[in-house]
Structures are given as C-alpha cells and as structure tokens.
Design a protein around this nucleic acid. Structure first.
Lengths: 248, 248
DNA sequence: CGCGATTTTGAGAATGCTCAACTCCCGTGG
DNA sequence: CCACGGGAGTTGAGCATTCTCAAAATCGCG
C-alpha cells in the first residue's frame, strides 16, 4: 500500500533510499474507509496498531466531564496516528474523521521487523513524531499567547504549509474542511466569538467560506497578521551525527 | 553518573534489568551546575547533546516577537531535554533554569551505542518521550478549555504527581519554586489575574506561599476543583506486543 | 543598604463568553 | 418529491472573565 504523502515527506529528508522507503510501505495495510463524524479511536480505548492517513482529514481531541472539547491537532494525509500510543496499552485521546477517511495500518510486529532491516526507518519515524511534537508546541503558543484573530490566521497558515509540504496540490492546500465549531474547539474559543473573528478575516479579504470549506485568499496577509514563522515546520535533513551513527 | 530519578522511573516500567539501566547511566556525563535565570538553551541554538535533569527545575518556552512568552512545560529531575531535538539541527524552543540546576548529558554517538547493546533502552527512552507528549496534550486542554482557577489547580496536581512518581520525597513534592509571572506564562494568563486567582486558592486553604515557593496544602481539594484525572500520567508497563517484539 | 524582581491593589476597559433565537443548508426517510 | 431534523452559520444583548495600565509595597540577594 503506497502512501504517496508519507513517501513524499520521507523523500524530502534526503536520507533514505527509495527501496528503504518501499520497505516501509510494504507493511501498510489499507483499512476500510470511514465516514465523517463517527468516532474512530476513543479515549481510553485499546491501541493495537499504528496508522498513517492516506486520504482525508481527522481530529485528535480530548473531552472534559462536562462536554468541553479541546482539539489537540488536525490530522492530514501523511500524518501518523497512534505511533507513540503503541508504547502504552491505551490511548488517552480520541480521534475522529472530519471527512471520509482512508488510512493505512501496521502492527508493532511489522514495525519492529522493518526497523531491524533498516534502522534508518526507526529514526525517520521518530523524526516524524518529533515534527508532530513541534506542532504541539506551537499550538500551545497559539492558544496561550495569541489573540483570537492571530490564532485563526496562524492555524490556517500552519495547515497550508503542512499540506503543501505533504505533497498536496496547491488548490487543495488552500481549501480546508473546517467548520466554525471545529475551529473554536481547536483554538480554545467559543463558537460565537470564533464566528465573529472569522467574519473579520473574511471582511479583510484574507479568507472566504464556500459550503463548509475555508478557502485561503491571501496567505501573505494571513502570515503577516499571525506573525507566522514557519521555521518550526521546516524539514531540515538529519544532522550528520545522527546519520553517521546509523550508517555504521 | 547515576541519575536516581530517571532510574526510579525506568525501574517502575518493570521491563528493564538493573544492569541494562546501568548501561544507560554509564554514558551520562555530569555538566557544570547552572544558576537560576541565565538562559541555558536558546531558541534556534544548535543541539549537540541530550540531557537529563539531575537536580533542580527548569522551563521550556517560546517567545513571540513582542515579548509574549509561553512556557511549554516545566522540567523536573528525571526529565529528558533535547532528546528529539537531536534529530534536527536546531532547537525551536528555549530552556532556562528556575533554580540552580545540574544535568547529565550524552551524545548521539553514545546513545546509538547503548541502543545497539540494548534495544530495550531505545524503547524505554521513546516511552519517556511519549509520556512527555501526553503531558503536552494535557497542557493544551488546560489552557484551551479550563478556567483560571482550574488551570492553576490542575497544573499543581500534575507537578505534584510527577514529582512523587520521579521518586522525590513527599515534602519536596509539595513545594514548588514557582513565581506568579511563571505561572502566568505557563497558563496563558496575565500576571495580575494569576495573582488574584492564586489568592483565591490561598483563601480556600488549598495552597500557600512561603518565600517564593508554592506549597500544596490540600491535594484532594485541588484535585476535585481541577477535575484532575491522573490517567494520562500513569506509568503503565509496556504492552506485551512491544515487549515480545524486542526480546526476540 | 539598595536595586531588581515579585507581590499586591485599584480602576477602567476590552476581549471574549453565555444565552437565546432564527435562518440556512443538506442529507435522510417517508 | 417533500417534510423533517440536525448541524452550521448568524445575530443581538448583556455579562463575566480577564486584560492593561499604573503604582505602591515587599522581598531577596548582593
């Protein structure tokens, strides 16, 4: 099962041979497609496999007792799901499709097998996980220290950058399946205030809304408004120290 | 260089032999002690080693252009610093001691060496990193979806739990070197509002302040107020699938 | 003893929230 | 084919939380 988005990202690392990447793709199994809305992975559910998004969007989130929801991040094609959760018995978050969603899966056994054949792959997957953690850091800054308008603009810029990086074509990358309640729960705001802020951005001609999809109209403007610095998303290649250690 | 806090945590995994753990400790080098306040790791600085806190507290944070600061997490004895950053050339966050601080360091070369001798250690360190990521998730929920009073109480409970888990004795675990500006920047609040909220907790006899240190007086009460559920911090042992794969 | 950081307080204002409708859109089932 | 229902979008009004500004008191360390 070839995952072209993941492949695209791994290739941009410039450290892996094509057939090493193929080795990884070989263990992927295509899972049945899921529909929007139904919960895929529940909080406290058992985790037996890890996944890679093949097509569609999803959210990873947590709920509080009283129903408040915090979306931790958005998952797009090429993103891994549950890689770390394999190290525990249970997940402490939930995952749910935002669109119709297809994913590839692999078991811990398969994973350890390829790691033995090619330790570089272990490093590459850790590197992907590290990348995701950087995004979490930035999500924290966004919510903790930016104001409503900046939050929206900054999130849009991140998603745009990630999509382009993953190999999505330009037009797709500027069109997000995001509703206002979703944005609210991702950015720690109420849906009403999210709406008003959203309208402001529309009024300023930075974004627009077409049938439940957000379109970015002026990425430069959004970037400036958000104070967006993409360095945390940059895919630097591995430092020589790491590469050297593994080619031994 | 034995790090008793890290050792304590690794042992509680129940998957590693004492001499395997010793293997890891053997590569630790003690770094010169640092004083409070001066920056240790800067944003955008080069990363050549990873570290483990041996004694003292630190913060990991990011700054915005205009000086706003978001503290991403607090680092306590036994915590790793820069493990993932080794996979990149540069760090995207800064780290700074809150108290006088001593740390142990190791190089990527040393790390890969022990991983070859004992792959279980690679899993164990990833497991620690995964643990840290769970804490980031919860920090997001805290800031995004809890109100001021809950935020403070919840953070206190997390720190208390982590300290006890790391092997700190009870009295130490209930005494934090945290000032109000720090709490404000960690919880995404202004220092004035942090102060007022803090005073409320003091008035309710849940905490107290002695010379720049926060003391927890009623962990039960804090826990209830915060809606604190420690499951995200629990140190479940590795699932059998993972363990089996590695004992092969 | 004195400086710098922390804590404290007041007051006014802004940002953002809740509540409550109402409309619109779309997919489902009759 | 249309009625229905649920979720999304929209709007207004009033309010709560939280912020900013400013200044004073205090503390800790050198």
């Amino acid at each position: 099962m070839d995952n072209k988005f993941l492949r695209h990202q791994l290739r941009s690392l410039h450290c892996l041979e094509s057939d090493t990447i193929a080795l990884l793709m070989d263990i992927f199994t295509k899972e049945p497609a899921m529909g929007r809305g139904l919960q895929w992975i529940g909080e406290d559910s058992q985790i037996r496999k890890a996944y890679v998004i093949a097509d569609g969007w999803a959210i990873r989130y947590k709920l509080l007792e009283d129903g408040r929801r915090q979306i931790l991040n958005f998952l797009i094609p090429g993103d891994m799901v549950g890689y770390f959760a394999l190290l525990f018995r249970t997940s402490v978050y939930a995952v749910e499709p935002l669109t119709s969603l297809t994913v590839h899966s692999f078991t811990p056994d398969q994973m350890f097998d390829v790691f033995k054949q090619s330790p570089q792959l272990a490093v590459a997957l850790s590197w992907l996980a590290a990348q995701a953690e950087r995004q979490l850091d930035e999500q924290l800054v966004r919510i903790g220290r930016r104001r409503a308008k900046e939050r929206l603009a900054h999130l849009f810029m991140e998603l745009n950058y990630r999509l382009l990086r993953s190999g999505a074509p330009q037009p797709v990358a500027e069109l997000f399946p995001l509703t206002q309640p979703l944005l609210a729960d991702a950015l720690g705001m109420s849906h009403v205030h999210t709406h008003r802020t959203f309208r402001e951005l529309v009024r300023e001609n930075l974004i627009s809304l077409h049938g439940g999809k957000v379109r970015l109209k002026d990425t430069k403007g959004l970037s400036r408004l958000a104070g967006f610095d993409n360095s945390y998303l940059e895919q630097e290649s591995l430092p020589s120290s790491t590469r050297a250690a593994f080619s031994r």
